[in-house]
Write a protein that binds this DNA or RNA. Structure first.
Lengths: 199, 199
DNA sequence: AACGTTATGGGACTTATGTCCCATAACGAC
DNA sequence: GTCGTTATGGGACATAAGTCCCATAACGTT
């Protein structure tokens, strides 16, 4: 049980098997299989089903691990200016594009987050809040940090994949119409916050 | 193959078995089983599993059938007045209460709607659109029917169970805070539509 | 009461998730 | 190379969804 053994020995093997499984799962999803079977993922990774379950306790865990994370601290371009309306418009534009690009994945994650297996993993962490806080930063002298955060939360709650799904699946809007609607909603909320304040 | 036979004979039996299954499923859900097994529902209804599958092609279909429908054409009280802001506030208040009352059921339906079995049944029909159109009716001379409808759709997309789930599960708001947020969002959208029009 | 229709029940089968156990292959340390 | 550890593979098992087939019970009609 030497430390060296654990840290530099088989650990590499374990990490490799794990990433093989994740890569294989991503490939299957990209190839059109919305929710690959654990067996499918294992086979695609040239690994036995048993081993796959050793790394991920459930199909849900595997799918979550295969979910590509967006590593950006800001959605804004280089020179976004100081106008919060413009900044929010830019951020929302980019955000909606991101959601549309990975709509399938987003839907899968939304579905998984609703499956009440107590198996709660680091799922759906709400990165968009930070992006919108960033876009609204110039409002700080006016609203204060707490209200900016609350406004960012409020906006995100109204313009995420959840609303997009409803607009397209239930209301029957096209993806373009739905995207336009989400952008309008965000601006409406900012405008109302500026005119009347938050609740 | 007489018509009389089909319409008044065994049809009663069929209807009874069907409603037994639905009642049993509702009872199980009310008793805390979020998604009862088809076998559980069949047993509770004193019916064989095979028969249950004869009435509902899948567990999903059974759960959807067991979903209690709200039979109301309006959420407004008797004398709602003509002010659209007030009317919307009343309707949203009632709507959010309805969602909170049946949050578990709403979550289940949301999850089912995301399961992409082509088995699309009369699921999640968007009754709230009509309720919000009703609340916004006094705006007709000003906005026109089409824009009122679009505004109702937009508001519903931002204040439904989907947003509530995000506000509580991801953003960490309490149910009361989330409800207050949804009411504010609806008012913000109406105010912006009145000030600037729709997209 | 006898008949034919229809609903029902029971069992076999397939696929997928998830768990458990045991044998063995691969690896590092000596 | 030998040893002990560790990752892996394979098989057996349980549960649940879903499908299919066949026998039988229940019912309306005559």
């Amino acid at each position: 049980m030497s430390t060296v053994y654990e840290e530099f020995g088989r650990t590499r093997q374990k990490a490799r098997t794990r990433s093989q499984l994740i890569a294989a799962t991503r490939a299957l999803i990209a190839a059109g299989t919305a929710s690959p079977t654990v067996e499918q993922a294992a086979e695609a990774a040239s690994v036995s089903r048993t081993t796959a379950y050793r790394y991920f306790p459930s199909q849900k865990a595997l799918l979550i691990a295969a979910h590509p994370e967006i590593q950006t601290s800001s959605l804004l371009p280089d020179e976004p200016g100081d106008d919060p309306v413009t900044r929010l418009a830019l951020a929302i534009e980019k955000f909606v594009d991101l959601v549309l690009e990975s709509e399938g994945q987003q839907r899968t994650m939304l579905r998984l987050s609703l499956e009440s297996d107590a198996t709660d993993l680091p799922l759906r962490q709400g990165r968009a809040i930070g992006w919108f806080v960033d876009a609204l930063a110039p409002l700080e002298p006016r609203l204060g940090k707490a209200d900016i955060y609350r406004l960012a939360v409020a906006i995100r709650s109204a313009v995420g994949i959840e609303s997009l799904v409803w607009l397209t699946d239930i209301a029957g809007l096209s993806r373009e119409e739905a995207a336009r609607q989400l952008r309008w909603t965000a601006q409406a909320m900012l405008a109302h916050a500026l005119a009347e304040g938050l609740p």
